[in-house]
């Protein structure tokens, strides 16, 4: 099979792949880390959580607190804190996290977490929703909500 015998439309697809592959290599993807804290509604019967438990909670594998209360997830839609939290505690990038929950939703396995545009909205939701857990920038929200120590 010679490349010249490939139809024109297919050659365009192939050229697109090669061009974009090289283009992708020169795109920067990193950023500096920020500090995030895990926050919860006052009704949550815990003061600390293991890192593994945070991961299980945010991937929907752990759905109830020790007192049987339902866990309600609150996430940010985007931003530095969102990316840092997912990387540090969930072991996924924002894109992988989003895909994970899309897979759950579109296969009937679960309901996607509440997602908020601003930390203020998230803080308000966690404060007012029994069993809720989320994450916020540490500096701006220290001492405003119940924070969980991550062991």
């Amino acid at each position: 099979m010679k490349l010249r015998s490939i139809p024109l439309i297919a050659r365009i697809v192939l050229a697109g792949i090669v061009f974009s592959a090289f283009g992708g290599f020169i795109v920067p993807a990193g950023h500096a880390a920020s500090e995030v804290m895990v926050v919860a509604n006052d009704s949550v019967p815990l003061e600390s959580l293991s890192r593994d438990a945070v991961q299980e909670i945010f991937l929907g594998r752990k759905t109830r607190w020790s007192d049987g209360q339902k866990i309600t997830l609150a996430t940010l839609k985007e931003g530095e804190e969102h990316g840092d939290f997912l990387r540090m505690y969930v072991g996924k990038t924002p894109h992988q996290f989003k895909n994970y929950w899309k897979s759950q939703v579109f296969t009937g396995r679960g309901k996607a977490p509440e997602a908020f545009t601003s930390p203020d909205e998230l803080a308000e939701f966690v404060t007012n929703t029994p069993g809720a857990i989320g994450y916020l920038p540490q500096r701006a929200y220290q001492n405003q909500l119940k924070s969980l120590m991550i062991e």
Partner: peptide, 9 residues
Amino acid sequence: YRFAPWFEL
């Protein structure tokens, strides 16, 4: 590999 939020190979 995701090189950027908009591009994956």
